[in-house]
Amino acid sequence: MWKIADTQLRSRLFLGTAQYRSPELLRKAIAASGTEVVTVSLRRQSKALEGAENFWSIIQQSGVRVLPNTAGCRSVKEAVSTAQMARQVFNTHWIKLEVIGNEHTLQPDPFGLVEASRILNEDGFCVFPYTNDDPVVAERLLASGCRILMPWGAPIGSGRGLQNEYALQVLRDQFPHTPLIVDAGIGAPSHASRAMELGYDGVLLNTAVARCEDPPKMAQAFAQSVEAGRLAFEAGLIQVKQRAQASTPILGTPFWQQENPGSLS
């Protein structure tokens, strides 16, 4: 068990609910992932989006917590308004705060993000900010009232994995007591596992499961990779070395190997 936003969870995998080919695949993927938190959004009611009631009933029946997002917001005003509307509909003060600053990379606008975060924290929200891997922005977000940080691994939906492990490690080292979730850019279970090996508290992903050939099976793979990565972090990874170091003891080696110790393995 671990704790985030005053909530005890077993799973460290947060799953998005978008882009599944059918509601049934979404339902099965949620179940297979073992996740306890899924992300959701608000959209205009229209003919193209008919089925909102059905979607919401699937999420409710899954018995998971929801983390509403402000996806698509490009300004502080939009993000704050969307967050307040989400609080009404989903009956939660959790909000995944997105303020997009670049259309090409969909990376966050750090200035708008910090401002929206300040407003929402003062309004009683528990803000999960989708941010970049800049420690200065992280400090500003924490000063605005955030207790959680969600740096990106790579551009949303790109599946490129952790593009800057160094920066993510710096964040982990600099904020050892802040829950850190890698959000966005994860494409394979090995990426998620690596984030957990770095000491991250969890990962949030969507496309890698929703758009693969077999979402329930991939959801299970991610669940196992997240757990493996966390176990490895807790076990303590060995230091990386520049040169080989024999793993078989030298002591008691036969005479023919003593003449050529470099052949040991």
Partner: peptide, 10 residues
Amino acid sequence: VEILVPYQGG
């Protein structure tokens, strides 16, 4: 006026 409903999200 904006009228919003629950929808899929990442």
